[in-house]
Write a protein that binds this DNA or RNA. Structure first.
Lengths: 246, 246
DNA sequence: CGGCTGGTTGATTGGTTTCAACAAGCGTGG
DNA sequence: CCACGCTTGTTGAAACCAATCAACCAGCCG
């Protein structure tokens, strides 16, 4: 259950068995929620950090007029908020995209963990850096990639992130999101996502069916997407990434 | 010179005089650069964190075909990258928008600072959280705000952030960016920014002239922008913000 | 067998880009 | 001091990408 979290942190620092054990013990209340339910909402006062253990979630903002925007996609091992050992108020809601199990590390436990294990401290801090870079690149996509480039980039990124935690199967990976979700994430309508997907399929680059993505030509997809996996801060060997062969 | 940095961190934790002194001493090499020069470029290997002391900068990505996107605007007191005490590789370039003075805190000094002062540690960590939230909201703007809402939101945010470090003068603040910069930041062309600005002026909401922004109707601007300053994590009293009166 | 969600398609509308030209401000050098 | 060139801002017309609206289909589940 905590396997993916350990795997993810392990890409940022070498964790000892003790570290992993401590981490596991710190995950206080493990909870399950169904797809489409909120894990945290705007205004929540959190005294700890929630981590996604299994399933996919997203950070989003919704306006009164119905518009909504997904600003991050959270995969197993990702924290719902930056992992800092202080109580703070939630500014952007987090919702489950699929059934999700998540757990909280209370602020005090997190402080203990980081104080007692330099490796864990490093891992958390490097994770924060990687997450920030993902967020920057997300803005790049929304700001200046075309429709087809955006989608291609998202697929490259998600596949690479999944591969890093052992959840990709070669050039194939789960993609349990609706076209509506993709639209909310990429700042476009589901109608347009649909047409863009057809274009990607027509180019022979991907197959997306039954909540599963298969990338037929990783190098070409990465080229189209202007995808350079460097920003993910994945150290070599942490799973083969889409474009490392590009 | 370090006044703005201290002011900013001071909004996140109560710093003692000793903390401020130590912080000042840790800022090793202070440097000046002209506008339009790079402070860090993609691939740089940084063994410390750079902080903007005076002037404005931006984080951006540029593609071979000329497209470019500004993903963050950095104001005095802002770190160029998340402040973590580890060497890491720069994934997104940072450039000065105006003449800038900046300084580095070497990784080892940063570690010492955080180890010796819980207040500084808290301030840095809360700063990271606030920065993340700004980045999320940036994605919201790019993804689902209209042209005029985006610009209005940017002005609200920048004014509020400037006010928090004492750089706003009532409803007025510096805005030393070109329409081209605004376009690169908002994912639009400068031509369209120009027309949107005229619309904002026509509504009597703002004046933007001579690198200075004046907000005539803060409440109306915030309403138009769907601006809710909560996400900036500014504790009350840290400077009057645009929409706190909305 | 409904009813629902998610996916697909077509026609129309509209917001932005593009291209092009020109005006205004400003620093520099003749 | 003025002329020049550069950057920045402004305007207009045409082209285009994506949103909107609406209808329809497929699969799934109670």
């Amino acid at each position: 259950l905590v396997e993916h979290l350990i795997r993810k942190l392990g890409t940022f620092a070498r964790l000892s068995d003790i570290d992993c054990l401590r981490l596991t013990e710190a995950l206080a209340p493990v909870r399950n929620v169904a797809a489409r339910t909120d894990i945290a909402v705007e205004g929540d006062c959190l005294n700890g950090t929630q981590f996604i253990l299994t399933g996919w979630a997203c950070r989003y903002r919704q306006f009164a007029d119905g518009r909504q925007q997904i600003v991050s996609i959270l995969l197993p091992g990702d924290p719902c908020e930056p992992a800092i050992p202080w109580q703070c108020r939630c500014t952007h809601a987090v919702a489950a995209l699929t059934p999700v199990t998540f757990a909280q590390i209370p602020a005090c436990s997190l402080r203990d963990l980081m104080a007692s294990s330099p490796a864990l401290e490093e891992a958390f801090q490097r994770e924060a850096l990687a997450t920030a870079a993902i967020q920057w690149e997300w803005a790049v996509s929304l700001g200046c990639r075309t429709g087809i480039e955006r989608l291609a980039h998202l697929f490259c990124e998600l596949h690479t992130r999944l591969a890093a935690i052992g959840l990709a199967d070669g050039d194939s990976c789960p993609m349990p999101v609706t076209q509506n979700d993709l639209g909310d994430a990429m700042g476009q309508t589901s109608v347009h996502i649909n047409r863009t997907l057809q274009e990607l399929r027509g180019l022979g680059l991907i197959t997306l069916r039954g909540r599963r993505l298969t990338i037929h030509d990783p190098a070409a997809l990465a080229r189209l997407a202007l995808f350079d996996p460097t920003y993910l801060h994945l150290t070599a060997g942490a799973g083969r990434a889409v474009a490392q062969r590009a």
